[in-house]
Design a protein around this nucleic acid. Sequence first.
DNA 1: TATAAAAATATACAGGCTGTTTGTATGCAA
DNA 2: TTGCATACAAACAGCCTGTATATTTTTATA
Lengths: 197, 197
Amino acid sequence: MQEKRRTNIQRSEATRSMLVAAARRLFIAHGYADTSTPDISEEAGVSRGALYHQFADKRALFEAVITSEAEAVAWEIERATPEHNNGNAHLITGAQAYLQAMGKEGRCRLLLVDGPTVLGPAQMRSIDGQSGATTLVNGLREIAPGADIDRLAASADLLSAAFDRAALAIDQGGAKDVYEAAVIELIETVAERLSAD
Amino acid sequence: MQEKRRTNIQRSEATRSMLVAAARRLFIAHGYADTSTPDISEEAGVSRGALYHQFADKRALFEAVITSEAEAVAWEIERATPEHNNGNAHLITGAQAYLQAMGKEGRCRLLLVDGPTVLGPAQMRSIDGQSGATTLVNGLREIAPGADIDRLAASADLLSAAFDRAALAIDQGGAKDVYEAAVIELIETVAERLSAD
DNA sequence: TATAAAAATATACAGGCTGTTTGTATGCAA
DNA sequence: TTGCATACAAACAGCCTGTATATTTTTATA
């Protein structure tokens, strides 16, 4: 019984994905600060040396976890929002898909709590940049074509903060239906106001 | 030239306040994780033993910093919002005061970034409990006396998340007037909708 | 006031963690 | 096949946190 013969690329991809998966589990369970690299490498079944060969440091591994998680959320939202859908309804569908996606175990902690602290708010914005903010601001532009773009971006930012808070509140045990209703009402209210120009 | 003779209570209060002030400076400058207890005790001019005598651990010292900062914000808001002011205008004044207060160097990092990670969202809520959420939900109740209380609380939560995001965005270099205008418009929009019942 | 007890502060220590360095094995290319 | 690059493993150095021990300062009491 001999070892499988693998190409270097396969080896690297295998250990990287093992490490990211293990790190994800432990970061979710104990948080970034209370997860050690010995714990991670053990959980992944590789040596600590392998970890530091594949990733510059613990932060870089965390960044890989966060990026993967943000992509998953973006993809789930994209899948749930048909292109042809227009304005108002489109935003609501997207928000619901976002809340649904953020319901997955640990995502709130990763993306909304630990992420901003470890990577900083600026880098977090750039990571889920396309997904959250841009989509939202485009949705608002569709509703209020005449509005000032900076002002619209600010409103989109505030709205997305409200979505984040709703996701977090639900994650912490808040009533999902209540928060989802509040989010939808908020969107409708803002859309109504914007289209009244 | 001999040391001043002080009572134990004075000694403790002096070192505690030195430690909290030093910790506050370093937590703001480098973040919680990258601030060590040797750094803090040196900056405060006391030994590390004194730190661990006055506070159970590093987290407890951080909690003291956070509590003090949250109290300062609450106090500044209270000072800026006269009691007799009614409904809508009251909320706007409060929000402006909040943004003003959060403009102080490092407060956003402490209260909005590191705080939730180190102490957890739940404890953070309980610390600035009175200030943020309760005031807001009371303001909304005044506007919409008939509305469901849970629903109102959720809306207040989402609004306060928007305020937080605005403060953070301004702190990160965003245009203060734009975000402040967006916040005010958001309040007016929500208030309008609520009072239309 | 003299002295014992208690409180506050200082120092020394024990484990653990991060990132680096050094060494080894495996894949790759000439 | 031979030399090099890549992936991995193990050992090391420095730092940090929290605790245990020792010392100084205050407080209580005789």
